[in-house]
Simulated scan of single mutants.
Amino acid sequence: MSVFVDIAPDEPQVGSSAPVAPAGKWRGRLTRAALPLLSVVVFFIVWQLVAASGIWNQTFVPYPSTVWQAFIDVSTTHDGVRGYAGYLLWEHLYMTLRRVLVGVVIGVVLGVLLGLVMGSVSWVRSVLEPWLTFLRALPPLAYFFLLVIWLGIDEAPKITLLALAALPPAAVATTAAVVAAPVGLQEAARALGASRTEVIRDVVVPSALPETFTGIRLAVGMAYSSVVAAELFNGIPGIGGLVKDASNYNNTPVVLVGIFAIGISGLVIDGLLRAIERRAVPWRGKI
């Protein structure tokens, strides 16, 4: 007796090679995009309700519309006044980003090179690691005034402060990554006749790159968190100088505009670093 099983042609069979419909993938992408947007909407609703409640004075918690008007004022020329302190918002942001870029490049380059040496030579790591930990534990204001005494109030102390803030995360991450490089791969390379330089270049560095990029992202974050401190003196034009000057006059809307400018530009920079990391280290998480 023959038994026939009727299978609907439009139902996918287990183990078949039929392509999976992309609907689930698109739903996942939409969800990932919608959740951050939803959190922003909720934040502004709560902010509006808190400001309207009257619990705090408008000096402390201004309405979102007041901050928006401050953003327009700082970004344009109005009533004969150009932006804030004679500079538009983009000019303040440009100066801050330029300082951060120079400081981060110096700090990251020195930190990565130092991390490679510390990870490769144990006695150098033993000597320098306590100093890196000491520097990393110091808040920027603790030594900024000393930098001002040594270097003056021009650009030098600002860039030096940002470089010192960026150096420890890059150095520590690179050191840890080099130390954790697969010993088996290094021994195999040596067995095949590779020199010490070739082992570092072809085995250690590619293995360390993922963690090094993490250290670079942390270094950028540390430098950005030090911007206001770096621009305490002669910081205009600059977002940190704008925030500091506006706070002297209890100008909370302008302070919030500066904070949002720092935070949003920081998100953009971190996104760019993530994109570069995906291109430069495609093997991350795959080996």
Rank of each mutant, 00 (worst) to 15 (best):
F145W: 00
F233V: 14
F44C: 05
W283E: 04
L167C: 03
V3A: 06
Y63M: 13
T197C: 02
P19F: 02
G240Q: 07
V172N: 08
V121D: 01
D270H: 13
T214E: 11
L161R: 10
D73R: 13
P12W: 07
R29F: 08
L49C: 03
V5Y: 05
V255S: 12
N251L: 05
E155I: 14
W283F: 03
R274I: 10
K25M: 15
L97Y: 08
G240L: 07
A173Y: 09
T31E: 12
A137E: 01
P64G: 07
F260A: 15
L128A: 14
E155S: 14
I287W: 13
W150C: 00
V178H: 10
D73N: 12
G115R: 09
S53L: 02
V41R: 10
A142S: 14
V81N: 01
T214C: 04
L167T: 07
A180I: 05
S65Q: 14
V81D: 03
V205A: 09
W56M: 11
V109P: 02
S53C: 09
P64F: 06
E198F: 01
A8W: 04
V227K: 04
P140T: 07
I200Q: 06
L49I: 09
L272Y: 05
L141K: 11
I200G: 02
L88G: 03
G86N: 04
T174H: 08
T212W: 02
P210H: 05
Q13E: 11
W123D: 01
P253G: 00
F71C: 00
P237G: 02
W131N: 04
V67F: 05
L97P: 13
F213H: 03
V50Q: 04
F44V: 10
W56F: 15
V183W: 07
V255T: 10
T96E: 01
G28K: 13
L88Q: 13
G15H: 08
S122C: 00
R27V: 12
G263K: 09
R29M: 14
V108S: 07
W131K: 01
P22A: 03
W90R: 11
S126A: 15
A189I: 09
R274V: 11
Q186D: 03
V243P: 05
A137M: 09
R27N: 12
V178D: 08
T174N: 12
L30S: 11
S225L: 10
Y249Q: 09
L37F: 13
F60K: 06
L93H: 04
L147D: 01
A208C: 06
A142R: 03
